Simulated assay, not measured.
Amino acid sequence: MKEAACWTSWQRRQRRRADLQWSRQRADLWNGFRGRVAEWFGRGDAVRESRELERLDRSASELSTAGQDEVERLV
């Protein structure tokens, strides 16, 4: 029984590591994507690019805190 408990603990640690790694990858993907979109919509203007980044961040924040019904409405 103790071996099974250790194995489960090891599995949980591995799962947490995998979740953390995926979370970091997702953050990297989002940051890369938002930067490219801001460059595109900013059209070389640093002020416009900054505004687009702010707008993207607001949208992401709204979507992350919205319920399922709200997400469907927002999208």
Rank of each mutant, 00 (worst) to 15 (best):
44 G>V: 07
67 G>A: 12
29 L>E: 10
53 L>G: 11
56 L>E: 08
46 A>C: 01
56 L>K: 08
38 A>P: 00
42 G>V: 06
65 T>F: 04
51 R>E: 14
59 S>G: 02
50 S>V: 12
48 R>E: 12
45 D>A: 00
67 G>R: 09
43 R>N: 13
59 S>N: 07
66 A>N: 08
67 G>N: 12
57 D>F: 01
66 A>H: 07
34 R>S: 11
34 R>Q: 09
40 W>V: 00
41 F>D: 01
61 S>N: 13
57 D>I: 00
57 D>L: 05
38 A>K: 04
49 E>A: 05
38 A>S: 11
57 D>V: 01
31 N>S: 10
66 A>L: 12
57 D>W: 10
58 R>F: 03
34 R>D: 06
50 S>H: 09
55 R>K: 12
38 A>Q: 07
44 G>K: 05
66 A>C: 11
63 L>T: 02
67 G>F: 04
59 S>L: 15
66 A>Y: 05
49 E>T: 15
47 V>R: 09
34 R>V: 11
36 R>E: 13
41 F>K: 07
37 V>D: 02
37 V>M: 02
32 G>Y: 03
64 S>V: 04
47 V>Y: 02
35 G>Y: 08
43 R>P: 00
25 Q>I: 14
50 S>M: 14
45 D>Q: 01
52 E>F: 11
43 R>M: 03
50 S>I: 03
34 R>C: 07
28 D>S: 08
47 V>W: 04
30 W>N: 10
64 S>R: 15
27 A>N: 09
48 R>Q: 14
34 R>H: 03
46 A>E: 10
59 S>Y: 13
53 L>S: 09
27 A>S: 12
65 T>P: 05
26 R>L: 15
57 D>T: 10
35 G>F: 04
54 E>P: 00
61 S>H: 15
43 R>A: 08
48 R>W: 07
37 V>C: 02
31 N>C: 07
58 R>T: 11
26 R>H: 06
53 L>T: 09
26 R>E: 13
52 E>K: 10
32 G>T: 04
34 R>Y: 02
29 L>M: 03
27 A>M: 09
30 W>E: 07
40 W>I: 01
48 R>Y: 06
59 S>I: 15
47 V>C: 01
62 E>V: 09
29 L>R: 11
62 E>I: 06
44 G>T: 06
38 A>V: 03
32 G>S: 08
43 R>Y: 01
48 R>S: 13
38 A>T: 05
26 R>F: 13
41 F>P: 00
60 A>S: 13
52 E>C: 14
